[in-house]
Design a protein around this nucleic acid. Structure first.
Lengths: 147, 147
DNA sequence: ATAGCATTTAGAGCTAAGTCTAAGTCAAGC
DNA sequence: GCTTGACTTAGACTTAGCTCTAAATGCTAT
């Protein structure tokens, strides 16, 4: 159960460059090397890479991920810091998801608008569909006519 | 109804530096200047900044936002391109939201785990709560014990 | 009318996160 | 025994997106 850097790259969706970069940055400590000096990635390493993806994908910087790793390595005395970190990360993620929902509404409205405009051939869509004004105002606010 | 760069910065949540940078990059064409040479931001400019935020926030690069702006300025002949752009952006956003939901599950599980660990004082949580194994396996996969 | 602040410009500097280059090593297949 | 291809290293380079500096100008309140 050991992967070369290329195999680990495919498994994780990252490039070999990135994996070496992460190791250089201290995000992948304890990567074994075989007798020829090649890195050997374990399943644990792959799992950890997936955790990195999760934290990175929810907006955590590599620097903060490194902090988390330091807490992991420090053992049971840092359980509360780690718990708090995940709680904060959850709040951040909730806000982010709310924001994306708002963006989704805007984009959906734009699609509605442009679908009508594409049929008509021009952007004067509100005249034929005055009911859109209500929705537009709810999503974009009073003084945003949405071009 | 005109704002200084400082006021526009507050309204948009961006810094004056960023607003000047955006103008320099061609993302804010037609910003007026008053007799003293100061920029005057209109409500339309603020609205456009909010659209930029939406596109940027859903992962579009400034370069692609500039492309969209070019289509806007080109008039009705580009309605289909713009419609397609928003449709693609919507697909991207849907994937992103799915991903964030997965990350939320992972983070919630971690919070559950660390909450128990914090009570116990150590990480041997599965022994006292073997039902967690099921959930862990569903969220993280078979060969990921989740440290 | 002067102090204090916001603004202007051109251009330099910064940060995060990779990405690549060059020169070399090594194992496997022909 | 030679080629091919994946790997190694150190360190330079890239990209996106800002962020700041310096020197000058201009409004605003005392």
């Amino acid at each position: 159960m050991g992967y070369t850097i290329g195999q680990a790259a495919k498994k994780s969706g990252l490039s070999p460059y990135t994996l070496r970069f992460y190791e250089k940055e201290g995000l992948l400590p304890n990567i074994r090397k075989n007798s020829a000096g090649l890195r050997v990635f374990s399943q644990d390493d792959i799992n950890w890479l997936q955790m990195i993806e999760c934290l990175k994908g929810t907006g955590m910087s590599l620097k903060n991920i490194k902090q988390y790793l330091a807490w992991l390595n420090a053992g049971n005395t840092t359980i509360n810091q780690r718990l708090q970190m995940f709680q904060e990360q959850k709040e951040k993620l909730k806000l982010q998801m709310q924001l994306l929902n708002k963006y989704m509404e805007k984009i959906n409205f734009k699609i509605k608008l442009y679908t009508l405009a594409a049929q008509k051939g021009d952007m004067d869509v509100y005249k034929a569909n005055p009911e859109l004004e209500q929705e537009r105002e709810r999503i974009f606010g009073v003084d945003n006519p949405v071009r």
